[in-house]
């Protein structure tokens, strides 16, 4: 049997962080392999793919960088796209940062540098369960994810010489499935008195995403819709 959802244990050690990362690993591996294959198909060398995944460490932006390099876009346009796509990390870090103020400066930098959608999702779930977070637990979570992401990207880059279409294997579905799973884990911890509020917010988010995506690129719509609907949540929450 595969590991359960995020661990129920109250301990916030490095090892517990590693354990809590395990349920997300298949997602990192699937998307990482898919990225390596796409990188190879975009004429990047294995060394370039390795550097990209190790230093940018952000799935969506890495795919976008490959696509833009392939079409010969100017440097400034590629870097600006990467910035906009990853700007949502500001919201993720802002939501978790207040829970690490007692930790040292270096620990805070360490936690922030490796922030991803998935590690954020796991941490937000942990926070709802235990009421607190620790830097050591977060490092265990983040470093495990970072290691598996990079190994998977390299594996994909190597196997890209034989496999050309990651979609045929369903690997592109790992990302939406992961976000859906993390969303359900979040909702599990909503107190029953707030179900109506959260249902309203989710419906508003769907409407806002559809509407804003008509006007903006979807990665901009993600940020705008979140800012607007989270504000609505503050207004509606009595």
């Amino acid at each position: 049997m595969l590991t359960d959802s995020v661990g129920r244990s109250d301990s916030l050690t490095f090892v517990q962080g590693f354990r809590d990362c395990l349920p997300t690993l298949f997602g990192y591996i699937s998307v990482g392999i898919a990225f390596g294959i796409v990188g190879t198909a975009s004429n990047l060398s294995i060394l370039e793919i390795t550097l990209l995944s190790a230093s940018v460490y952000a799935g969506a932006a890495q795919f976008a960088i490959c696509a833009l390099l392939l079409t010969g876009s100017p440097l400034s346009a590629i870097v600006f796209s990467a910035f906009i796509i990853n700007l949502r990390n500001f919201l993720l870090s802002a939501a978790l940062a207040p829970h690490f103020t007692k930790e040292s400066f270096l620990h805070n930098i360490g936690v922030g540098v490796l922030m991803t959608d998935e590690s954020f999702g796991v941490a937000a779930t942990k926070l709802k369960q235990t009421g607190s977070l620790s830097a050591h637990w977060m490092h265990g979570l983040n470093l495990t994810a970072y290691l598996f992401w990079n190994v998977s990207c390299i594996l994909g880059a190597v196997s890209g010489q034989w496999i050309s279409d990651p979609e045929a294997w369903g690997l592109d579905f790992a990302l939406p499935a992961m976000f859906l799973g993390l969303l359900f884990l979040q909702l599990e911890h909503v107190p029953s008195a707030k179900w109506k509020l959260y249902a309203t917010l989710i419906i508003c988010m769907i409407a806002a995403m559809l509407g804003l995506s008509l006007l903006f690129p979807t990665h901009v719509a993600v940020i705008l819709a979140t800012v607007i609907v989270a504000s609505l949540g503050v207004v509606l929450d009595k």
């Binding site: 959608d117 999702g121 976000f179 969303l183 989710i202 988010m205 993600v222 979140t226 989270a230 503050v234």
Partner: peptide
């Protein structure tokens, strides 16, 4: 409210 909002947005 950010976790539920942003995860919905990403889906």
């Amino acid at each position: 409210f950010v976790p539920v909002c942003i995860l919905t947005a990403l889906v």
